[in-house]
């Protein structure tokens, strides 16, 4: 399941919903992305996430389906927020559940790595020193590439 929303999410409630929905799972893995303090020193900063409504949901659904093809998952969940966020705010939640830990952990890492390089979101940072669009990082491409099949 995927959700794209401005509102915050409740990590415990989302994981509990997945745990209570299946009797055969033995492992639940999760990843939470949080806004870093870009300005430092307690100075005010914010991050605004822009997205492409429609394509965002479509890409997240594709990535989710790919994870379900590659690993025997009982359940999977991606929640990604958009709009204005502050340091400490949650940005993204990925939860995967499977009978065994390897599938859950690997699928969770796969989902966040592919999401970062494929889902159409863009981060705009504002600090007292100025504002800027966050640049894509080659390291993220490398992380996503390790899941590419030859």
């Amino acid at each position: 399941m995927i959700r794209v929303q401005a509102e915050d999410f409740d990590i415990a409630a989302e994981m509990e919903a997945i745990a209570s929905n299946s009797t055969s799972l033995g492992a639940i893995a999760s990843f939470v992305g949080v806004v870093r303090d870009m300005a430092g020193g307690g100075r005010p900063s914010s991050m605004t996430l822009e997205h492409y409504p429609g394509m965002t949901e479509g890409m997240l659904r594709e990535i989710d389906e790919e994870a379900c093809r590659r690993w025997p998952l009982e359940a999977s969940l991606i929640i990604h927020r958009y709009g204005r966020l502050e340091p400490g705010d949650r940005i993204v939640l990925v939860v995967t559940a499977s009978a065994h830990r390897h599938a859950a952990l690997e699928a969770c890492a796969f989902l966040i790595d592919w999401l970062k390089t494929k889902a159409p979101f863009w981060k705009f940072e504002e600090t007292p020193d100025g504002s800027r669009w966050v640049e894509a990082r080659a390291l993220d491409d490398d992380a996503a590439a390790r899941w590419e099949k030859e």
């Binding site: 993204v92 966040i112 390089t117 889902a119 979101f121 863009w122 640049e135």
Partner: peptide, 10 residues
């Protein structure tokens, strides 16, 4: 058709 820079979500 949409034009945009490399994505930076997550």
């Amino acid at each position: 058709v949409a034009l945009f820079p490399p994505v930076t979500g997550g």
